[in-house]
Design a protein around this nucleic acid. Sequence first.
DNA 1: CGAGCTCTTGAAAACCTTCAAAAACAGTGG
DNA 2: CCACTGTTTTTGAAGGTTTTCAAGAGCTCG
Lengths: 241, 241
Amino acid sequence: MAKKDQTIQTSPHLQIMVNTPLFKGLSVDVLTAVLNQAQYYNFSSQSFIFHQYDKAENIYVILKGQVCLSQTTSAGKQVIINMFGAGDNMAILSVFDKAIYPLTAEAVTDCLLLGWSSQTMQQLMEQYPRIALNTLKFITSRFVELQDRYRELATKRVEQRIAHALLRLSQKHGQSTSDGIFLKLPNSRQMIAEMTGTTLYTVSRTCRQWEELGLIQSGREQVTILNPVSLSAIAQELPQI
Amino acid sequence: MAKKDQTIQTSPHLQIMVNTPLFKGLSVDVLTAVLNQAQYYNFSSQSFIFHQYDKAENIYVILKGQVCLSQTTSAGKQVIINMFGAGDNMAILSVFDKAIYPLTAEAVTDCLLLGWSSQTMQQLMEQYPRIALNTLKFITSRFVELQDRYRELATKRVEQRIAHALLRLSQKHGQSTSDGIFLKLPNSRQMIAEMTGTTLYTVSRTCRQWEELGLIQSGREQVTILNPVSLSAIAQELPQI
DNA sequence: CGAGCTCTTGAAAACCTTCAAAAACAGTGG
DNA sequence: CCACTGTTTTTGAAGGTTTTCAAGAGCTCG
């Protein structure tokens, strides 16, 4: 699935590298050194970047495309832990020896990634401690985020969780249009269900209801958020505006 | 609440320091240097070590006692994220400037902690990069753990989650007795409920049922696990043994 | 021995899932 | 262009799980 490709022009991607959490604050020289050690990877839509339980070999930065990170339970249910996009770092734990991917990464769209092997990244971190500290800071913030979502899952009702998930998705992956924020998601009801710990039926009913109220406009594999403010009010269970 | 105390004999605690994730693999010299920068803190049972939203100032190692980490929702519900004990590290994110505690830490029993200020730990990490790498490894493993619990919350029924919570607690905080593994928990039904995202009523019913089946023996503020194997089968929804 | 917790229990209600089936849609090939 | 196919979404009805509310029982400690 993955095709290595060394001939891609780096200039448009440099901007992403400069801003990605792992490499923030590095000098151009260091950044160039880091880039020289990287390999480009292409993954086509719906292909797998890595599988849960595989030996963790690479650490990635996403340059282009959208990646879905999910876990599968022993009973076969899927849970989507996160959706990543351009600029996001992935598979941090690969820097540790004998690490195992704790989840599966699937390309939702065609993706272009930059990757470093375990050993390469270990060396880079030793050579440039700033990278290690950046990584620590990044993973800590991800940890805090996940804690918040854990609490949400433990305390909020399905409707609120769906609202929240839509808002999070729209912030990260949405495109502003004249109507509102447009979201393209393959198999959207199913996906939203797996992000919020519910079923596609409940998501469908909830979205339908919101469509009736004019909060969203939804169709096959896409949702447009027309009224983020009301949606946010639902997410927090505030009295409706 | 906190009383600083510099006169405590370090010998019995040194063993804990050597094995705590943050300081694993450090030479005795380095460990001594690290210890010299630390301060001892005493917290009595039920006192707060820090509050959610406070400025994060200290990073801790627990030497003695049990600490409950919880978040409070805007609606006032509590969610217990973790229970820590001797040897555990706490409030890692304090090493970052302007960090805010994302949760509240309450001493469940009388506690003795070792603490370092933000700046001190930053300096230590710069001076001994091994500490930074240890921290990265530690927080990564905590992250992976939390992901697993997130999935559990999203996919499993209450009964299974309670079983899992009891098993986790017993592993970490239980005492082996002739009958089974004994767990002391103040306000146990309520606490278990807050750990599993359910209500104390449901926990009570579930525990009662397990007691009838002879899997546990439960009383006021305590639970003894008599049959961890069956409990584990319930947690995984296996056919009963 | 009474006050205040903690825990249990029952009944009703709310919430959500499951199952089944139909409708809507996109893409394909004739 | 249209019928056909497979996928995605919607909808209804039934059922299961869990919460909520209310009240009582049991323990502990001053």
